[in-house]
Design a protein around this nucleic acid. Structure first.
Length: 265
DNA sequence: GATCCGTCTAATGACGTAAG
DNA sequence: CTTACGTCATTAGACGGATC
């Protein structure tokens, strides 16, 4: 028996996801290209949506259709509303296990270094994290933040980062800022405290620094396009988790490891 | 086939209301 | 007062039947 999702549930899920992202109905409606009252109707379960619309919601809110339709998805969403403590956050994000403290500091660190760069919105931020994680894994065969990434339409997106970010906003480590960049709505984060890298290995910092140096000036679409040519991204299926092991199948210019001494440049 | 008609769905703007 | 959200009336478009 396939799980059947009702119109009410679709609306509820969209509403919850919207609130998680702290969008207003008006914001979200504009982003998906419908009127605000229409969105109200959708969230209340009084209007149905077609597959194209749902896809659009997925792009904006960061979910895959598979996720959205699954039974488990609703549980995750409800769990989130009930749990707030950091240790629960850490428990829930498993395989690979996310080091929440580390992720927070890396996030702060990246934000510090991109403070003055208007191009670094949420999209670019995700990609910087993705490349930091996968580059580090390729080089050292160890997890950096341990976050798991999913293949979503705009590129790899760290799972459950929402939870961490909301946590950080609540504890006033960062601040969310919604602005416009080239006419498109952009979500930015401002670091309010300094990153604490004392527990970091030199190698870890170096990998992050290189990623920041290489990509932080690129536009969101440039970073997005670049990430779409990365092997781990390419061979993963839409909506699925990107396996860290795939980092070893990378080819130049993505590969950060010198397998042989034949750098023919 | 073409045309007319009833029904349904969705978009829109205006308005009301509650919270801050 | 402003913002966010829900509701309402009106309108337009799509669709399915009947009829010619």
């Amino acid at each position: 028996m396939i799980f059947q999702i009702s119109q009410d549930q679709i609306g509820q899920r969209i509403s919850e996801l919207r609130k998680r992202k702290q969008f207003s109905q008006e914001d979200l409606a504009r982003m998906v290209g419908i009127s605000r009252p229409s969105l109200t109707q959708i969230e209340l379960g009084k209007r149905s949506l077609n597959i194209m619309e749902l896809q659009k919601f997925g792009q904006v809110l960061g979910f895959s259709l598979d996720d959205f339709m699954s039974e488990k998805f609703s549980l995750d969403t409800l769990d989130y509303l009930e749990e707030k403590k950091e240790q629960n956050v850490a428990d829930r994000i498993s395989v690979p296990s996310l080091k929440v403290g580390k992720m927070k500091n890396i996030l702060l660190y990246i934000l510090e270094h991109c403070a003055g760069k208007p191009n670094v919105g949420e999209t670019v931020l995700y990609k910087l994290l993705y490349f930091s994680d996968f580059n580090y894994y390729e080089l050292y065969e160890e997890q950096l933040t341990g976050a798991s990434y999913r293949k979503l339409p705009f590129g790899p997106v760290p799972q459950n980062l929402d939870t961490i970010i909301n946590d950080m906003i609540e504890s006033e480590h960062i601040q969310r800022l919604r602005t416009e960049y080239h006419g498109y709505p952009q979500t930015r984060y401002i670091p309010l405290v300094k990153a604490d890298l004392t527990g970091f290995k030199a190698s870890e910092k170096e990998v992050i620094d290189r990623v920041i140096e290489q990509m932080s000036d690129w536009s969101a679409s440039a970073v997005s396009n670049y990430s779409h040519k990365d092997i781990p991204w390419m061979v993963s299926k839409d909506g699925e988790e990107i396996n860290y092991e795939l980092a070893f199948y990378r080819e130049p210019p993505f590969s950060v490891r010198n397998y042989e001494e034949d750098d023919a440049l």
